[in-house]
Design a protein around this nucleic acid. Structure first.
Lengths: 243, 243
DNA sequence: CAGTGGTCTAGACCACACC
DNA sequence: GTGTGGTCTAGACCACTGT
């Protein structure tokens, strides 16, 4: 994929400079000088720097300067780009050698509930698949997953596919890349279904994750509500404030 | 507390509009119109929208429009968290004009538990402050927060400081910037203390967030365990797999 | 073809860090 | 006082969407 944005090109060049130790003191020239050197406006230069700051390569100190993050440079070789994507069970766990299975509770084509319809940016006459599955990792029930997927996007979906990984199927068979999502995570007391399927007592909660997944082109692909066994789901992330 | 950036002000106003359902179709006016309505340049408007997109509140579709993320709106509580940096209560909520107060349950200097010690990269004879506070937003109890902070890093910490925002103190008095953190989020049944302090029944859970916060130079600064009222904590984020 | 977000420019003023 | 990143403006052109 060539013909990147200008600011991405600049970012790449700047990154090369950094890795080649062109700024041995660790301090970069100021933004005005850099923008002249790269022959772009200061805004574009700033945007290029922004992206390297976000990647942990550079560090900004207001009114002081822009610096190379020495920790990054030190660890550069074994730096694993831990860019995370949508929370798909099958991929992450099968990579760990665990076996994911599903038992399907519901599989139907419906007009989705209002909130799902809006979340998927559908019109009021757009149908969706609706299915609900109990997911097992190595035979242990870990979650109840409810999905809504617009039928236009996935004309071939059936119960057999739903038993396996929808994501895998989308990627391999349909060439759809699922790269972006919005996620909300919160807790709720378990309901009777949770208790039955996930072996919970009424005192034990579920961790709910609601997620809207988008294709790389920004088309909403699915709306997923997962009620997780509270002992079998932890959400981990790292955060940096770039201010 | 002081005057925010223009784009943050605009973002807050726009957020209000969204929560007040000023855009019932879910589609916002285009950026040029919005920038006129708010009387700012399009760049500033874009930056305001950017921040709400990052928070998972809005969704952009290039060449098509900007849309409200209904997942966010549905799960929105007055106490929702967005991914903007270490999860510090005081800053994010006081910016919203809400008042954070604390009641201190424990304040002591201890050898930390094994897991905390490891998380903070301490040796077995390094002492930490240990304090536990009930946090209130506008007088409503929302969480019980337990902190461990190495005494070397914070020689002056006392009960008075702990009553307010540790982060503020670190920033203003000690010139420490807390910019990075690792977070884990999961659920647990409430214990007796949770039930008493947060007004929960035994059937209601807490949402726990564990966080290790680092200074800008990568030194572990604190280990925090927060037990949140399950109705008053939602973690929202947006995730991209690529770049 | 009109609408929209994405990108980019070439300026400007600000507050604070550092000298 | 000077240098720096932070913010903001008022334009411009582009590529693609949707009608």
């Amino acid at each position: 994929m060539d013909s990147l944005n200008l600011y991405n090109q600049i970012a790449n060049q700047l990154k090369q400079n950094i890795l080649e130790d062109l700024y041995p003191t660790g301090k970069l020239p100021n933004e005005r000088i850099l923008s002249e050197e790269f022959n772009v406006s200061r805004s574009t230069m700033k945007k290029a720097i922004d992206s390297l700051v976000e990647d942990g390569l550079l560090l900004r100190k207001a009114r002081s300067g822009t610096f190379v993050n020495l920790l990054f440079k030190k660890n550069y070789t074994d730096y694993s780009h831990q860019k995370r994507g949508p929370i798909g069970l099958t991929k992450s766990f099968s990579e760990q050698g665990k076996k994911i299975t599903s038992r399907i509770l519901v599989f139907e084509v419906v007009l989705p509930p209002e909130e799902v319809r809006k979340g998927l940016l559908l019109s009021s006459d757009d149908f969706t698949y609706h299915f609900k599955r109990v997911r097992y990792i190595d035979q242990v029930a870990v979650s109840i997953e409810t999905n809504y997927i617009p039928i236009q996007l996935f004309p071939k979906l059936n119960k057999e596919i739903a038993k396996d990984s929808i994501y895998d199927y989308a990627i391999k068979e349909m060439n759809i890349l699922l790269t972006n999502s919005y996620v909300s995570i919160f807790s709720l007391p378990s309901n009777e279904e949770d208790q039955k399927e996930l072996n919970l007592t009424p005192y034990e909660p579920v961790t709910v994750s609601e997620e809207i997944v988008f294709t790389e082109t920004g088309i909403p692909f699915e709306y997923t509500i997962v009620r997780n066994h509270y002992q079998k789901f932890t959400y981990n992330t790292s955060v940096s404030a770039n201010k």
